[in-house]
Design a protein around this nucleic acid. Structure first.
Lengths: 102, 102
DNA sequence: CCTCCATTTCAATAATCGTTGAAATAATGA
DNA sequence: TCATTATTTCAACGATTATTGAAATGGAGG
């Protein structure tokens, strides 16, 4: 993961609605949820949600697959781990006090 | 750590210069560096750096103490660990694949 | 007290991001 | 093909964030 990748991922996470999306998708695991379900669950308009989902997908934190008419989103757990690993190792030098959170 | 705290911290980290500041301060450990040294090391104007340092301090990721005329900044390692802990546990439900980064 | 140095604050501007609602695309089934 | 549903895209606007340079603050020493 490059610095730019990390910055894109951090920016993507740095928004209330998008953080909620991640939580929701983590809960729903590998099955994921489609765009409409996500928008409804979080009380956001489809259009606004599409914008946020694109941000998270551009950051590679979530992935999408079309299932008939709907587009199903799910968390990329490895990418999420990659971000945490970057923060801990590349950014905080693996500092023991930082690592003690895990 | 509340959701708002996490969002503030993520926003603070989501900027190239501020990520560099964190790296620099992690390297300099408990001693820290003063504002001028940080600005010079990263090739930023004192005024711009002050803006970024304030963002990081408001997010409680770094702390500052005045030493005579200079203001010394250092990383709050516990806060940094708190952010990672939040991301892993509150946001990613402690998912094993996410946690495997640490 | 005056000057110097380090840093912050401020106002103005530029750039980026987020929201809205309407229109476009894509897939399904009658 | 046509109507329907799901989602995205687009343009416009408003809001937030970043940068710049000048002015203000706070502390040290002569």
């Amino acid at each position: 993961m490059t610095d730019d990748d990390a910055l894109t991922a951090l920016s993507a996470m740095a928004h209330k609605a998008r953080l909620q999306v991640v939580r929701l998708l983590v809960q729903s695991g590998a099955d994921g949820l489609n765009a409409g379900q996500i928008a409804q669950a979080l009380g956001t308009s489809p259009s606004a949600m599409s914008f946020h989902l694109s941000a998270l997908r551009d950051a590679k934190l979530i992935k999408s697959t079309r299932h008939a008419r709907q587009i199903v989103y799910s968390v990329d757990f490895d990418a999420m781990g990659g971000l945490l690993g970057y923060l801990l190792h590349d950014c905080c030098g693996g500092n023991a006090r930082v690592a003690s959170c895990c």
